[in-house]
Amino acid sequence: MYFLMRCLHHAEQDAARDTHRPAHRSWVQSGGDGTATVLIGSALLDENGASIGNFGILEAADLAQARAFAEGDPFNRAGIVASIELTPLPETFQAHRIADPMTLRR
């Protein structure tokens, strides 16, 4: 199953994001130690270009696995994330059009 993951961050978290970004990127690359596959993701910005969160398109067995991935992210564990939103994508989602997934498939 595919999910849109949207994580909004608490305000003024730039320094904390900088500190935890290497661990966050490792988490994404590992798929949360195999919990999910991250096809694509990026920072979310406000209208002034300030970072307010992150998003990703995940492939996971079910909603529980997608949530485990999101909740296990170092950004979340460090208290940076204010809210996590997971939205199932339709079966017609064309994941094959994303040529270079962020997580290596096993």
Results as ranks from 00 to 15, higher is better:
residue 1 M to T: 11
residue 2 Y to M: 01
residue 7 C to N: 12
residue 7 C to I: 09
residue 8 L to M: 11
residue 10 H to C: 10
residue 11 A to F: 15
residue 12 E to D: 13
residue 13 Q to V: 14
residue 14 D to R: 15
residue 14 D to A: 15
residue 15 A to C: 05
residue 16 A to H: 12
residue 17 R to N: 05
residue 18 D to H: 12
residue 20 H to K: 05
residue 21 R to Y: 10
residue 21 R to H: 09
residue 22 P to K: 03
residue 22 P to I: 02
residue 22 P to G: 03
residue 23 A to T: 10
residue 24 H to A: 04
residue 24 H to Y: 06
residue 25 R to G: 04
residue 25 R to Y: 06
residue 26 S to Q: 13
residue 27 W to M: 09
residue 28 V to Q: 03
residue 28 V to N: 02
residue 30 S to M: 02
residue 30 S to F: 02
residue 30 S to Y: 02
residue 31 G to L: 13
residue 31 G to K: 12
residue 32 G to V: 11
residue 34 G to W: 01
residue 35 T to F: 01
residue 35 T to E: 03
residue 36 A to E: 04
residue 37 T to V: 15
residue 38 V to K: 04
residue 38 V to P: 00
residue 40 I to Y: 02
residue 40 I to H: 04
residue 40 I to S: 10
residue 41 G to I: 12
residue 41 G to A: 07
residue 41 G to E: 05
residue 42 S to T: 05
residue 42 S to L: 02
residue 44 L to S: 03
residue 44 L to F: 11
residue 45 L to N: 05
residue 47 E to P: 01
residue 48 N to M: 06
residue 48 N to Q: 15
residue 49 G to T: 04
residue 49 G to E: 00
residue 49 G to R: 09
residue 51 S to L: 14
residue 51 S to V: 15
residue 54 N to R: 09
residue 55 F to S: 06
residue 56 G to T: 10
residue 58 L to P: 04
residue 60 A to N: 05
residue 61 A to C: 08
residue 65 Q to V: 03
residue 65 Q to T: 10
residue 66 A to Q: 08
residue 68 A to E: 09
residue 68 A to V: 07
residue 68 A to Y: 04
residue 69 F to G: 11
residue 69 F to W: 15
residue 69 F to S: 08
residue 69 F to L: 13
residue 72 G to I: 03
residue 73 D to M: 06
residue 75 F to R: 03
residue 76 N to H: 15
residue 78 A to Q: 05
residue 78 A to N: 06
residue 78 A to W: 03
residue 78 A to C: 07
residue 80 I to D: 02
residue 80 I to V: 14
residue 80 I to K: 09
residue 81 V to E: 00
residue 81 V to F: 03
residue 82 A to E: 13
residue 85 E to D: 11
residue 86 L to G: 05
residue 86 L to M: 05
residue 88 P to D: 00
residue 89 L to M: 07
residue 89 L to W: 12
residue 90 P to T: 01
residue 91 E to Q: 14
residue 91 E to S: 12
residue 92 T to G: 02
residue 92 T to K: 09
residue 93 F to T: 04
residue 93 F to L: 01
residue 94 Q to E: 03
residue 94 Q to L: 11
residue 95 A to F: 06
residue 98 I to K: 00
residue 100 D to V: 06
residue 101 P to H: 01
residue 103 T to P: 00
residue 104 L to W: 01
residue 105 R to H: 06
